[in-house]
Design a protein around this nucleic acid. Structure first.
Length: 279
DNA sequence: AGCCCTGTTATATT
DNA sequence: GAATATAACAGGGC
């Protein structure tokens, strides 16, 4: 159930474990086919089996597993998780293990997803960004080089759209989800329901600066571990201790001691300080 | 027990 | 188009 910092942490953890040696796919077991999108499961298996894993990348909340000729584009949605075992013998099957990659050296990569929302798609190598679901993604929410006020303002189609909805739209900005968007708006002192058309250039700049700062700090802390979610079997993030508003309903604002409010914006639970973040 | 909630997003409906 | 509802699904909390 990760946002950009958690997916980045997953990617780094997987690279560290998997690229200690060559990993060639021997077989893929698909126990729940709904994860595989836009391609039959036999074709999916056939496409990837016998290929060596060459790289793992990330854009926004998407993971790219690159093989010699093709890539798997993986989205974890709410609860997708990977875990890796060097030896098949160590592999313990659990309830929501849906996709299992067996490598020729007896190591195993398992995709687990309690709610089965996650997706996997296949593209040709280096054509990941051309796939429909990824093609329209906006600039990444921590991209110092490309993210600027002019870019964001150019993405406004309806000035009456609420800022939270705007920032959650991955086609405007890629990587922010429900937790970090609340954090960014709190740090920027912007009410989550403020209309994008009423936001000043200075405020846009603050939103950008805070987005970069918060996401990069979260990455340094290896993301947030909330409830049952952890990055992998032997790693937990620490950023949940740094969250200033998310999950702090009725607690005191760290700036002004006002009680943090929780409302609905769209259908998402939304935390904010009614004094620091005025409409 | 039943209803609400949950770090997501694509699609259908109004 | 744009806002809202729904769908995909499981489990935890009250």
């Amino acid at each position: 159930m990760p946002e950009l910092p958690e997916v980045e942490t997953v990617k780094e953890a997987l690279k560290e474990k998997l690229f200690t040696k060559s990993r060639i796919v021997k077989d893929i077991e698909i126990r729940y086919s709904g994860i595989i999108h836009d391609i039959g499961i036999e074709k999916f298996r056939k496409t990837i089996i016998n290929q060596e894993l060459t790289n793992i990348k990330r854009y926004g909340k998407y993971l790219f597993f690159q093989f010699e000729a093709n890539s798997i584009i993986s989205h974890l949605r709410m609860e997708g998780k990977y875990r890796f075992y060097e030896k098949t013998d160590d592999y313990i099957l659990t309830k929501h293990d849906h996709i299992i990659f067996y490598f020729t050296d007896e190591s195993v990569l398992i995709y687990n997803d309690t709610r089965k929302f996650g997706t996997m798609e296949v593209t040709r190598i280096n054509e990941e960004m051309e796939l429909n679901s990824v093609a329209k993604l906006g600039v990444e929410a921590n991209d110092k080089a490309k993210l600027n006020v002019q870019y964001l303002v150019s993405k406004i189609k309806n000035p009456n759209k609420r800022i939270k909805d705007f920032l959650l739209d991955q086609n405007n900005l890629a990587g922010l989800g429900n937790i970090y968007v609340d954090e960014v708006l709190f740090a920027s002192k912007v009410h989550p329901e403020k209309k994008v058309g009423t936001i000043t250039k200075q405020k846009w700049q603050q939103i950008i600066d805070n987005s970069i700062e918060i996401l990069d700090t979260a990455i340094e802390n290896k993301g947030s571990t909330v409830k049952s979610f952890s990055i992998s079997q032997d790693q937990e993030g620490n950023f949940q201790h740094e969250l200033k508003v998310y999950g702090r309903k009725n607690e005191e604002c760290v700036n002004c001691s006002t009680k943090i409010k929780k409302i609905k914006v769209g259908s998402r639970g939304t935390h904010y300080c009614p004094k620091c973040q005025r409409k």
